[in-house]
Design a protein around this nucleic acid. Structure first.
Lengths: 145, 145
DNA sequence: GCTTGTTAGTTACAAAAACAACTATTACCA
DNA sequence: TGGTAATAGTTGTTTTTGTAACTAACAAGC
């Protein structure tokens, strides 16, 4: 009574994207987890602060499409480990300015290095041109253009 | 003391892929969740059975790169809702053959329809050619070639 | 046949994510 | 003003996931 079917799951974009994303994330995840015990939400916050300097939690959430509770908890853990410094804003006391501590900077720079190497290692599977095109299309899909 | 930096997070492949994958999954997720209360692992199992007919849990895990505990739990919930029928194998009594019930078939066919429509809606953002190239590259990255 | 190793699948527990409700502060406006 | 709504961020609770240990059945070598 079973009717096999020719729907191509591998070609279904949400499925395929997830598989590719998982595969591509795995190696890098291993590094920030093993080396610094960071979670995904934590390295994201770390990178945002490393790149943009001083931000509020809300700004990080907006830039990275991360929910505020995730940012809040990530910041909490990063602050506990003295990777991030928090300071209440004078103007608006609901707001907290976040920035990396010197140690946080070091961790960021190390991971940025790793990220760049990792990126190169992924490029092995694709030509430069392919990579450029791929990213352009992913940006479109991500609604970031 | 904060040093802004020009590392391009949007262009970091694992990050970008995740964003695109999340964005691309969202709409479809909404449907199988709202309409049938399914989880991601559940629709995946459902689709595998819909496409391939009769499979064991291990086979589904291998085809979809899903861990056996996830498959196990997905199957359990699908069986509870009578979408999947389980039958101990005669040859090897560790093995359980899984297939869709008639109701499961209906749900599968409905969601397959939705998936196809959804896929088309994503194509609006990209040309046919772009889509073809994109998928080819994602397959490479996913290590499926 | 016994012992050892493997495989299919489940279960238990810990880690992480999702969602909703909450506090504190500021903005709006009649 | 004073009252209502909006915003920043946190906390609590429930779902899901991840990991490891487990049971049951089979396989292989001696």
């Amino acid at each position: 009574m079973t009717k096999p079917d020719d729907f191509d799951l591998q070609a279904f974009l949400p499925y395929l994207l997830n598989q590719a994303a998982e595969e591509a994330s795995l190696g890098f995840q291993q590094i920030y987890k093993d080396r610094y015990g960071l979670l995904r939400s934590e390295w994201r916050v770390l990178f945002h602060l490393g790149i943009f300097g001083r931000l509020t939690a809300t700004e990080i959430g907006a830039k990275g499409k991360v929910h505020k509770t995730k940012v809040s908890r990530a910041v909490q853990r990063l602050a506990d480990r003295r990777l991030v410094k928090r300071a209440r804003s004078e103007d608006d006391r609901r707001v907290e300015w976040l920035e990396l501590t010197p140690v946080g900077e070091k961790v960021y720079r190390d991971l940025r290095e790793v990220a760049q190497e990792y990126e190169s290692s992924l490029q092995v599977k694709l030509s430069d041109d392919e990579m450029r095109v791929l990213k352009a299309m992913l940006l479109k899909l991500a609604g970031r253009l």
